[in-house]
């Protein structure tokens, strides 16, 4: 099978996967207790039953669950995700105004995770057993064990309040690629990328150690290649396959972490939007948001599969 055929097949497969995601999300949001109308009415107000009935009708909440689902699906097919119950504005607009920021944060965090994790893993593998390896092991353990909201608060306290190097809140009035925003994003990205970088480092280290013991390495060394060339060109490249797999899985982790990081760093983002929507039972936003995350994760995994074939030309689909 050629790569093109493989990609086509995978793309076609995403359709039932995403459909499944929407059904499960729909069921989970509707089966949990609580009702958007309860949240819509401020505590202490006592609207008449008739007013409540009117509201329920307006959002089709009086219809059977499967009818509600198909009403939603019918519109979603043509990218109409409806109107937010709480905000009264278009769901697609609410998501699109925040998506670039979350994507930027995610890409930035993944970049930091790879930029720290891969070289650190290589060094630890090469210096296996000595002090550098020990230090990196402890650092990795700390990185994985530190809750990211705590790390975020500490970084804000040190760099924002004590040293005053950065602002404690994001710059206002800037577009998504503005230098001021990119500067501000360093800390959130470091916070978010830390745990992932620790994990990537451990994976890189172990698969490097495995590769280093293989025959071709001895062969390469025997034929007099520089140590650097052996490590970087041959061993590291072959070790990257497992790292790419894990990195793709880390995208889900990063989307997840964005909810907390956006909150701590007071940034706009899809994570916060969905969290708030869940708390307010704003079904249309939850549906569209989860669907979007599903799309991101499916495509991240697809990208990983494609990258394999570049890393190891022997891999054919």
């Amino acid at each position: 099978m050629s790569l093109r055929q493989y990609v086509t097949k995978r793309l076609l497969l995403t359709v039932p996967i995403l459909l499944g995601v929407t059904v499960i999300t729909f069921l989970m949001t509707h089966l949990q207790p609580g009702d958007p109308v309860d949240v819509l009415i401020p505590l202490g107000a006592n609207p008449s039953e008739e007013a409540i009935r009117q509201l329920r009708r307006q959002y089709h909440l009086n219809e059977p669950l499967y009818v509600q689902y198909f009403l939603w699906l019918k519109d979603a097919m043509v990218f109409d995700f409806g109107v937010s119950i709480q905000r009264d504005s278009l769901v697609s607009e609410a998501i699109l105004t925040r998506l670039p920021y979350t994507l930027l944060l995610g890409v930035f965090a993944l970049f930091i995770a790879v930029a720290i994790g891969v070289p650190a893993g290589i060094i630890a593998a090469v210096r296996k057993g000595d002090k550098v390896d020990e230090v990196s092991r402890i650092a990795a353990l700390l990185g994985i064990a530190t809750p990211n909201f705590w790390l975020g608060l500490i970084l804000i306290f040190i760099f924002g309040v004590q040293l005053g190097w950065i602002s404690t809140i994001p710059p206002s009035d800037v577009s998504v690629l503005d230098p001021a925003l990119l500067t501000y994003m360093i800390l959130p990205a470091v916070t978010l990328g830390t745990a992932s970088s620790a994990l990537l480092m451990r994976i890189m280290r172990s698969s490097m150690i495995e590769e280093l013991n293989k025959e071709y390495v001895r062969m390469a060394r025997a034929k007099g290649l520089a140590a650097r060339t052996v490590i970087v060109k041959h061993v590291a490249r072959n070790s990257l396959i497992s790292v790419v797999t894990v990195a793709a899985l880390q995208i889900a982790f990063i989307v997840d972490g964005a909810v907390v990081i956006e909150q701590v760093f007071s940034m706009r983002g899809v994570g916060r939007l969905i969290l708030q929507a869940i708390l307010q039972r704003d079904f249309p936003i939850i549906q569209a948001g989860v669907l979007m995350i599903g799309v991101v994760i499916v495509f991240a995994n697809l990208a990983a599969d494609i990258i394999y074939s570049f890393l190891d030309p022997r891999i054919r689909y």
């Binding site: 109308v37 819509l40 009415i41 107000a45 006592n46 609207p47 008449s48 007013a51 509201l55």
Partner: peptide
């Protein structure tokens, strides 16, 4: 008929 109806209906 709004969620805040009771503000006035009271």
């Amino acid at each position: 008929n709004t969620s805040r109806e009771s503000d006035v209906a009271d």
